[in-house]
Structure formats: C-alpha cells, structure tokens
Amino acid sequence: MTDVLLEIDNLSVDYETARGDLKALRNISFDVRKAEIVGIVGESGCGKSTLISSILRLIAPNTRFRSGEIRFDGSDLLKATEREMRALRGDEISIVFQDPMQTHNPVLSVGQQMIDIQHRSKAPKGEKREKAAQMLAAVGIPDPEARLDQFPHEFSGGMRQRIAIAMALMSEPNLLIADEPTTALDATLEVQIIERLQELQREMDCAILFISHHLGVIAELCDRVVVMYAGAVVESGDVRKIFHEPKHPYTRRLIECDPGHIKTRARILPTIPGEVPDLANIPDGCIFRDRCNQATERCMAHVPPLESVGEEHMAACWLNHEEVTA
C-alpha cells in the first residue's frame, strides 16, 4: 500500500464544552492515495471542518483527540511536534478555504503575499516574484505581472479564489485540501474554477481532499467519495459506485434530492426530515436511525460497522448486512 498518502485511521475527536464532551468525530477511517481526488460530502455540522483542522492541527483550544491516527506519508501527524507540523503546512499539505473574500491580507498586495509564502525558499526576490506571476497565469489570471501589485480588494471573488489556489499550489504540495472552495461563488465561476483545478491537479500530480455541499461538483471532480453524517463515515468508495448504487439510506436520500449535475446549483445540501442527534449525548444504535424510514430493531440497539459492500465500496448500515448474510 505504498500509494497511500493520507490515512485516517479510527480517528475520534471531541470538543470539551460546558455541556460535556461533544463527540464531533467518531471512529473516522478513510484514505487518500497519491494523486487522487477524494470528495467529502455531508451536512453542515457533520464534522468536515473538524476533520480538516485535525489534519493540519490548527485546532480550537477545546479540541481533544480521543483515538486514532492521521498518517501522512507513513508518519502519524498526531505525534508530530508543532515545529514539524509547521514545516508540513503550506509545503506538503496546502489548503484553500471557503470564503475568498476573507482569506487574503487586506493591506498587502497580492504580490507581497505570494512572495511572503515562499519564505522557505532562499531564492532572490525577483525570482520569487516571477514564480508568483507564473502561478497567477497558471490559474487563469490575465496580465499577472501587473496584477501582482494590486490589493485583494481590487479582485473579484472568483479571481481571489484563483489567487488562493495559486498560493496553495505554489509549493507543489502532495496534498491539497479544499474546504468548499466554490460555495461562495456563482455557478459559472464554479465550473471554471473546478475545471482549472482539475487541469492543475493533472499537471502537478497532487492529491486533493475536496469538501463540498455540491454533489454535482463531487461527481464531476472526484475519484472517490466519503459520505459523512453527524461525525461518522456512513459510506465511502468509488464515485460511480456511490452515485449509481448507494448502499446507505442517507446517501440515497442525498442523491434523490440532488441528481448531481455540475451545472445545476445546489448551494446547500437538500434537507431531509428529522434532526441530527445531539453530539454531546449520542443515542444507542445507528446514528441515522431517527431519520431513516427503514430502521429496524437492530438499528435502535447496535451501531452498524463500516464494512465492505463490494469492491472499493464501504457502508455502515445493517440493511446491507442482512442482504449479505441472507
């Protein structure tokens, strides 16, 4: 398994709160192989950002790692020192955030910022500037040399997100994390940026962990998908398998509501009746049981394990289990 780049193994993360421990992530396992694009889908609050901040270890002070490992290139990041983490961030692992209007320093020109993030390189300033211009050109910003001297507010949202992507890819990372990078943009821009990202990914051969609410984008872009629900992985596997033969009722409901076409706009995931259980007080049994119309006795009492339901396909649902055993 040498082609695995990032391996999340049985990760559980809590937030300590006044109401007790909020179990934001429970026994999460999945991996990202070299040069592949893995999508993560899930409703707001299902723990996507917690997962990302755990990987980069840019966590809120009340975060507690309860179990598991985050192996990157074979070594456990949860055991790395802060110094080692800092060396990794922006070099081997980069990130693009959701809101391009907020992610740039408002008082420094784009050029200054792009030169600054090359702080690890000893190259002369002129060379760094040239590289910055090349990157801007690569993400499709016309006249990059002149635009380097402009400030972030002089760019549109789409342009700013392109700049963020340029900055994230500058160090040619092995893993790019994209946290809903196109949610704040309108549909045509979204398509353009996704296409550009795809091209760059092929060129640079980096893996992407792509978080999105938009199933269409996931279907278009990703090789594999991880479906999360209330802090747990409910289904994961090859993108075609997930979309064509979903094995978890939650995934099925998502796809029913959003046929997954990149051109159609779905800013938020479709709402499914029922409520997400309180993560500080998790009930017995399957986490999805209250919203599932196929729930049985067994689902009320026991947590279904995430098990293989076919080649490159895992799901955590007792219904599959019965099919297999029957």
Binding site: L58, G90, Q102, T103, N105, I117, H119, A164
Partner: peptide, 17 residues
C-alpha cells in the same frame, strides 16, 4: 481570529511572521 491569519498559519507561517 480572522480567516486570513488562519490561512497564513495553514501555510506554515511562524508566529514571528
């Protein structure tokens, strides 16, 4: 607490930077 500082940290900037 601003997002661009989080972005800088995620790019590996040290406290001094």
């Amino acid at each position: 607490n601003s997002e661009f500082i989080l972005a800088e940290r995620s790019m590996g900037a040290s406290m001094a930077r």
